[in-house]
Structures are given as structure tokens and as C-alpha cells.
Design a protein around this nucleic acid. Structure first.
Length: 559
RNA sequence: UGUCCCAUGGUGUAAUGGUAACACUCCGGUUUUUGGUAUCGUCAUUCUAGGUUCGAGUCCUAGUGGGACAACCA
């Protein structure tokens, strides 16, 4: 039972402090609160893992709450997509909540605040309101409607609710302090009129509450003990607390907002606006394009939920600006896939190799292990014959000592088959190699038990029998951006850093057993990387996405 | 010409006033029918200046650098 205790992060410290100060553990409750206005991305994954991870660590519930207070942007289809992504990551929420479920409570509280002189209806234009608000370095001034009577405020607010006014005619504002150093405290807007149909409440409401007025009160209604959000909301905390002050009952739990730094991953963008731009301008094929770092894109690319969760856990959580290198993510991806994926052979850039001393017309079914890591995964049969495809880059007429692959006069092993020796190659008029000739050692068949089969040769190549090869489409992905941080350049737009070679589509030659794979299945193409079957696959043509390459120390030496 | 947040190897995190550590990356060795995996190892870190203290990455002050804040968005 030696549980290796990992050090707490500062969020866990906050919770344990509260526990030590008398908060009972069963009062702990967390939430993940996305706005249903787009797809979740890798940044959200960190927040999901944080909140649901805390739920698991402390054995307490986590709500999934949709922050749906702006009908102009939100749609039911995003609600469904978000639920699917959270589930795919392997988390189960306690209650499924919507801020829109609280519209009536929020309204009633707002009416009470008007009666208490804590809120008023402002009838100015948004420009006038903005003008009076001042700037971060200059205090604001009070507007002309700030001291309206309670009766007038009540009547106007009711009128707003009943649809008697158009958008922008009136807003309800909290009466706080126009001179505050915190701009959010300068009489923030609580309600505005929006003439839109809401994806859940339909036409029932003409006024909609703003984020600040909604979020803390929603936390309170759900009795969330700790409300974690990203650092940009830190200035909102003062207002979060002020709004709570207006409504918290003494016998109820008072939620606490704390902030952490959003995780940025190199070579990606995560703002919805920018992701949308990539989709709209056709840089990618959609929100689930395998090059996108949306959860749905990562899923289609072949990322596993485990890899994402391990990544999130390993990078931890902090308060400083950060840019996590993509290779952290890829490390966890390879780590997980190495254990989970069967091995197969597929030649991406095929060239024909003829074994001149192998009988024409002969076919042998050779046994190949599905995983060197785990023999319990069993074996499959792979057909071998006189003509096979190998990778073009695996042959050189002459190569230096570091080149472990096939060259004239040298031996290599064909994986799970025979040791062959390079003899010569055939070239076309332009000097391009079109065909390689080799001879084989008939006694060297893998696991035949002969002395020859035990011989050590430096290189091992993967191969596919020409007569049995299954042509498949393979989509090779590279990073979508050529620089680590595409959206922080002061002069250049992030679109200028789009990698024009982020996708290469090729036809590869696969071993015949691969035709049994189904969409979503992941395998390792030995020596080449991890690949998964894309849903674009048809009866006639299988399509594979390259999830990630193998670590390749040779490629680095070679260049 | 404001308020607030942040600062530990190339990257991310830990050290809770007491020997600066872990992972990734990089580089190198061993094993290997994947130049993969596994395994061993090397290199490399507390922004600056003062102060408190027997002792400071940690506490205090100032500076420097980075970031947030002026949507009827969240």
C-alpha cells in the first residue's frame, strides 16, 4: 500500500488548507463550466483534468455546467459535442447543469438588489457608459441615472424583462464604485436585453444576465466549494465576492474563486476565433481535422484519453505564463501507444526488391508477433514471396558505417523473415533506382531455430510482399505552425506561420492483415510511427492518419 | 504613467526557513529481429540589489523583466 505521495500543487494546497481550517471534506464540490459556443481544445483538457482530477482525488462530485447566458453565440450542438469530449476523456460528471436553469433565481435576486439600492437601470448608450467608465489609469464618473428611484428602477427592469424595450435601450447595473481601481467594480452591467432565441429557454427571456452576475451565483446555487478558473479572471474575483455578499445565506457554503495559469502548448493556437479562422479559410478541413488541437481533432488524429490525461497531470498547474513544448505531449502519447498498439508492417515509400535466388511463384506464410512488448497479444501470418516492397530510404548502393540498412554486399534481416544480401540495383534513364536485387540465406528464416536464423545482423527492415500488398492512403501530418508560439508575434499575424507542409497524402503498401482494422483502431507501422484508421476509409480504400512518428535518432544523424 | 499577478536548467513542475529535485528535450553507453521500447549515464537551474535570520529559491523592500485589466462576450 505504499502510495507514492506526489507533491501537492498550489490548488491542492488551497483545498487542504480549507480542510484543515474546518471545511468538512464532504462539502467539497467542483465544476467545469464551458460556454457552449465552440469546440473544446487541449487547453480545456487541462481544466477538465484539473477539476475532475480533484473530484477523483478527494472523492467528491464534479458538475458539468454550461455557462449559457449569451444566446447570440451558443448552440445546442456545442452542448452535445462538449459532453462527448468530456466523456471521451473518461470523466463522469455528477450533475449536468445550465446557467440558464438559474435565470429565475438570478432575476429575483436582482429585483431584491434594486430594492436594496444596490442596482439601477441605466438608459444611456454603450458609448456613453464606456466613456464614464474611465480607463485603467483614470477613475470613472457617475452617470446621470445612477440615483434613479427604486420604483422607477423596478418598473424599468420589469419592462426590460417583459420585452417592452429594444436591445441597448436600458441595462441593469450594480451600484458599486465608479472610482474603483478595478474597472470591473465600476458599476458592472448585470443584465442586457437580447432579442434572440435561447437554445434552452427559447423565447421565455428577453433579458440575459452577464457572466459576472451569473457565475458566482451559479456556483453558490450548486454549492460549489472551489471555483477554479484561468488567471485572466483574477480581477473578477473582487466582483465575484461582492455579488456573493449580496445573496449568501449564513448557513450555506460560500464558494471560493481561485485562478491558475492557462496551459499553452507550442506550435498551436487555442483561441476559438483563431481556430475558426483556420477552418473558414480552408487551412484545415474542419474542427476535427487531425492537425487541430481540439479534443475532437486530437481524437481523430489517434491521441488517447490516457495520453492527454497523463500529459495534463505531468505538466502540473501553476500561476506563471508558460509554453509547454509539444514534445511533452508526444512523449505521453508514444508512451501510451507503445503499450496499446499492435505492430504491423507498412511501406510508405515503396521500392521493389527482388530476391533472385528465391523460387518464383513460392509463397510462405511467416509468423509475426503483434507486439514485442507483450507476447500475449499473439501472432499473425504475413505472406512472403520473391518480390517485396521495402522503403526507398532503406537502400543505398554504398553507405557509410553508420548506415545500418541495405547496401550492396551487406546483409540485413527482413523482419520476421530472412537475412538478405544486397547485390545490385536497376536504374532508369535518369539514374533513379527502380528495382533492387538481393539474395537470401535460405537457412536464416526467423525463429526456425537454425544456427543461421540466430545470426546477428546490424539492420532489420520492414517489408510487404508485392503480390499481397494492400494499397492504402496515408495522411502524414506535421505541425500546423512553423514556430513555437504563432500568436504572440508583435508584427506578424499567426496565419503567416501556418506550415504549408502540414499535410502530405501518399499511397502506401500495407500487409494484408491490416484490412481487418476498423475506423479508430491504432497500430504501429514498425519503424515508422503510430497510425490510426480514419473514418474517411471506404470498402475500397483504407485511410490512415499518422498519429505521431517514432522517436528517430537516425533521422537526426542523417540531416 | 494606476491597480493587480508572475519570475527555479532549453521546456514544464517540486523543494511549505535547513544538502536545489523530478519529468521532457539534448548528448553518450548497454540491450534489441523496430536506429522503437527498456536500462544506465553526462550536461544544465534559483532575474538583480539590499535587508531579516545561525541559515533565504522560500520572508521583507526596491529595481528589472513578463503578463492581466477600459465587450450590453465568457
Amino acid at each position: 500500500m505504499s502510495e507514492d505521495k506526489k507533491p501537492n500543487n498550489f490548488i491542492e494546497d488551497i483545498i487542504e488548507d480549507d480542510l484543515n481550517n474546518g471545511l468538512s471534506k464532504d462539502k467539497l464540490r467542483f465544476r467545469f463550466p464551458p460556454e457552449p459556443n465552440g469546440f473544446l481544445h487541449i487547453g480545456h483538457a487541462s481544466a477538465i483534468c484539473l477539476n475532475f482530477g480533484l473530484g477523483e482525488k478527494f472523492g467528491q462530485p464534479v458538475n458539468l455546467r454550461f455557462d449559457d447566458t449569451n444566446p447570440a453565440k451558443e448552440e445546442a450542438k456545442y452542448v452535445d459535442a462538449i459532453k462527448k469530449d468530456v466523456e471521451w476523456l473518461g470523466y463522469q460528471w455528477d450533475e449536468l447543469c445550465f446557467a440558464s436553469d438559474y435565470f429565475q433565481e438570478l432575476y429575483d435576486w436582482a429585483v431584491q438588489m434594486i430594492k436594496d439600492g444596490k442596482a439601477y437601470v441605466d438608459s444611456q448608450s454603450s458609448e456613453e457608459i464606456a466613456d464614464q467608465k474611465g480607463t485603467p489609469t483614470q477613475p470613472g464618473v457617475n452617470g446621470p441615472f445612477r440615483d434613479r428611484s427604486v420604483e422607477e428602477n423596478l418598473a424599468l427592469f420589469k419592462g426590460m424583462k417583459n420585452g417592452e424595450y429594444g436591445e441597448s435601450e436600458h441595462v441593469l447595473r450594480a451600484k458599486i464604485n465608479m472610482q474603483s481601481t478595478n474597472m470591473l467594480m465600476r458599476d458592472p452591467i448585470m443584465y442586457r436585453v437580447v432579442n434572440r432565441s435561447h437554445h434552452r429557454t427559447g423565447e421565455a427571456w428577453k433579458i440575459y444576465p452577464m457572466y459576472d452576475w451569473t457565475h458566482g451565483e451559479s456556483d453558490y446555487l450548486e454549492q460549489i466549494s472551489h471555483s477554479f478558473c484561468t488567471l485572466e479572471f483574477l480581477p473578477h474575483r473582487e466582483l465575484y465576492d461582492w455579488f456573493l455578499d449580496q445573496i449568501v445565506a449564513p448557513n450555506k457554503l460560500r464558494p471560493k474563486q481561485r485562478e491558475f495559469a492557462r496551459r499553452n502548448v507550442s506550435h498551436t493556437v487555442t483561441s476559438k476565433r483563431k481556430l475558426q479562422q483556420l477552418v473558414e479559410q480552408g487551412i484545415v478541413t474542419g474542427w476535427d481535422d487531425p492537425r487541430m488541437t481540439t479534443i475532437s481533432g486530437l481524437r481523430r488524429r489517434g491521441y488517447t484519453a490516457n495520453a492527454i490525461k497523463n500529459f495534463a497531470e505531468s505538466i502540473g498547474i501553476g500561476k506563471r505564463d508558460n509554453l509547454v513544448d509539444m514534445n511533452h505531449l508526444e512523449f505521453h502519447l508514444r508512451d501510451d501507444l507503445n503499450k496499446a498498439a499492435d505492430r504491423v508492417m507498412c511501406v510508405l515509400d515503396p521500392i521493389k526488391l527482388i530476391i533472385t535466388n528465391y523460387p518464383e511463384g513460392k509463397v510462405e506464410m511467416l509468423e509475426a508477433e503483434n507486439s514485442q512488448e507483450d507476447v500475449s497479444r499473439g501472432y499473425r501470418e504475413v505472406p512472403f514471396s520473391r518480390e517485396v516492397f521495402i522503403e526507398r530510404e532503406d537502400y543505398k548502393e554504398e553507405g557509410n558505417k553508420k548506415f545500418f540498412r541495405l547496401k550492396n554486399g551487406k546483409e540485413v534481416r527482413l523482419k520476421n523473415a530472412y537475412i538478405i544480401k544486397g547485390e545490385r540495383c536497376i536504374k532508369d534513364a535518369d539514374g533513379n533506382i527502380t528495382e533492387i536485387h538481393a539474395t537470401y540465406d535460405p537457412d536464416s528464416r526467423s525463429s526456425s531455430g537454425t544456427d543461421a536464423s540466430m545470426r546477428k545482423v546490424k539492420g532489420t527492415l520492414h517489408w510487404v510482399s508485392v503480390a499481397h500488398a494492400l494499397p492504402v492512403e496515408v495522411r502524414l501530418y506535421d505541425r500546423l505552425f512553423t514556430v513555437a508560439s504563432p500568436d504572440t508575434d508583435k508584427e506578424k499575424d499567426f496565419m503567416e506561420f501556418v506550415n504549408p507542409e502540414s499535410l502530405e497524402v501518399i499511397t502506401a503498401m500495407a500487409e494484408p492483415a491490416m484490412k481487418n482494422l476498423a475506423a479508430g483502431d491504432t497500430v504501429q507501422f514498425q519503424r515508422m510511427g503510430y497510425f490510426c484508421v480514419d473514418p474517411d476509409s471506404t470498402e475500397d480504400l483504407m485511410v490512415f492518419n499518422r498519429t505521431v512518428t517514432l522517436r528517430d535518432t537516425w533521422a537526426k544523424l542523417d540531416t
